[in-house]
Nucleic acid binder design. Sequence first.
DNA 1: GACGCGAATTGAAACGATTTAACGGGAGGC
DNA 2: GCCTCCCGTTAAATCGTTTCAATTCGCGTC
Lengths: 338, 338
Amino acid sequence: MSSAVSIKDVAALAGVSIGTVSNVLNRPDVVADETRRKVLAAIEELGFVRNESARQLRTGTARAIGLVVPDVSNPFFTDVARGAEDAASDAGHMVILCNSDESEQRQDRHLQLLAEQRVHGVLITPVDAAPEPVRRLRDRGVSVVLLDRHADVADACSVSVDHRIGGTLAINHLLAEGHRELAMVTGPLSIAQCRQRLDGARDALVAAGRDPDGLRVVEVAAMNVASGRNAGERVLAGTRRPDALFCANDLLALGVLQVMVRAGVRVPGELAIVGYDDIDFAAAAAVPLTSVRQPSRSLGRRAAELVLGETNSPREHVHHHVVFPPELVVRESSRRFR
Amino acid sequence: MSSAVSIKDVAALAGVSIGTVSNVLNRPDVVADETRRKVLAAIEELGFVRNESARQLRTGTARAIGLVVPDVSNPFFTDVARGAEDAASDAGHMVILCNSDESEQRQDRHLQLLAEQRVHGVLITPVDAAPEPVRRLRDRGVSVVLLDRHADVADACSVSVDHRIGGTLAINHLLAEGHRELAMVTGPLSIAQCRQRLDGARDALVAAGRDPDGLRVVEVAAMNVASGRNAGERVLAGTRRPDALFCANDLLALGVLQVMVRAGVRVPGELAIVGYDDIDFAAAAAVPLTSVRQPSRSLGRRAAELVLGETNSPREHVHHHVVFPPELVVRESSRRFR
DNA sequence: GACGCGAATTGAAACGATTTAACGGGAGGC
DNA sequence: GCCTCCCGTTAAATCGTTTCAATTCGCGTC
């Protein structure tokens, strides 16, 4: 059972002390060539694998970071995860991925486990606005980077996108294309991102000299395709159908689109649609989707870099707040009908 | 710095020994009510968090499993991951997610790190058919479940879908709809899943009394949307365009579809398309995609259950080979043109 | 009143690595 | 030939838990 092989066995076989084996592993330069070769040979022969928990216990630092997101089945978050993994990988770290499913309870359970693992840091898109979980984590000595959420609280780094501007971009575009009767499909307004996108949308209306309350808001329970279909049906059922829809993310937009296509509503002829995130599938949709792009992979990468940087030099660390600008990608779904 | 709080501090504050604190943590029933309350109060007051590495070092077992997949941005694998996480979560375990990107080198690096972490087990869709990495892992004492790959080797569990039958289903359907000039778009044939789906496709042709070599094969370098577009362009450029296309996964199919729609080729009028995986976005595509469904979430869940089961009772463990049947989901993209 | 018993608690020995101060021995300077 | 110095190596302490044999204590039994 080679799993039982420890540094001690290697030392015995190589005829050196365990301290020397440790040096071969961690500071190969201080050990003589001859010795190093013997030790490496012994490691090879025994199939020795370093026990990371022992290392971690002694040094106090883990080689992993946690990533807590609401939902990995959302391609936006997989892209973020990829970015985070890229950066972590470069630093020889692993990523522990956790889904909170928008449940505070699940989130807290995950955070507890991550704290027990003594992870190097945590990247999190918190379930709700309350800075509570962040504070608890910091109290436990874990450094935290808020993902896709600008930290109002000053005690953590954050990497985010200016969603308010994103909302404004979307509405400005729809207005410019000549759409007048606008509505927004959004997930729970308890989610900060949704609120901000809505605020941005209203900003645009105000700037255009229109009544921000003229924007109808269709709020659904989740931010996935199924909820999008639900929203689509509600829009269909309503009186006075809007001629353009801004959806708080692409999954919602795809759901709405599906319902519209099925119901024979021409998009963008009778109804223009703008999504948010610009996931890969937006371009491949029934009608290629206009969307507000977030640099998701960079978001994840930057966040991971921040969290790794913070714990490496906690003394002189000052919290950064990185805000990426969103960008409108125009495709078929929002064109003016001619 | 509450991160420095150890069981010893708790013991001191509560006025008991560290053994008792450990008992409160792990076997609360053996300690007297009064004592338990004191200890819990001390834990609360100090903000004590158990150090998992120390626990792990002592007990030898980690509370995490590794999941190594080619690409999490493929929704099929996120679904698998969700299933695995569900099962792991139930057992109080975490999932460490790793992307191999179809690179054997990346895969091996991840496996090395997972072995060092002494993870409870590893779920893996190996980069290539070689059972080598699996063997290495087992040698290191880590139990392994092959995901989406039937183990020809008998030394590991496997959870998979019968891709050969999946390929047959797809082609039978296309033939039944009256398509005659068939082609298959596939990722690298070094990927076993691709080969099996192709074999199944040929089976169907033979069974229908047709020449299996009449099936044109378009092989591209990766299994994502971009490669699908590439395949689409090659199909367009070729002479004698097929009237039906079986794609080795939905991402390829979506890419092809995008190109066809843009080029004005009517789907399914001039070209029928069948995908594979039935990811959520298949139904929301430009033309709702007929696809061979895999029970992806169940796949992940079952695999996680197996790996947890194996290490919990390694003595009497016998390797299971779970094979789920695929299922054809018919939508617009493959209908016979009338 | 001695004894045994069970329940609750304690103390100490692991687990497998890293780290640091001490050590040995050969080279070089005087 | 002796003293230093330096390089490579070693021995031992340590990290924070779990676990198990040993201990204490109160109490009922004979």
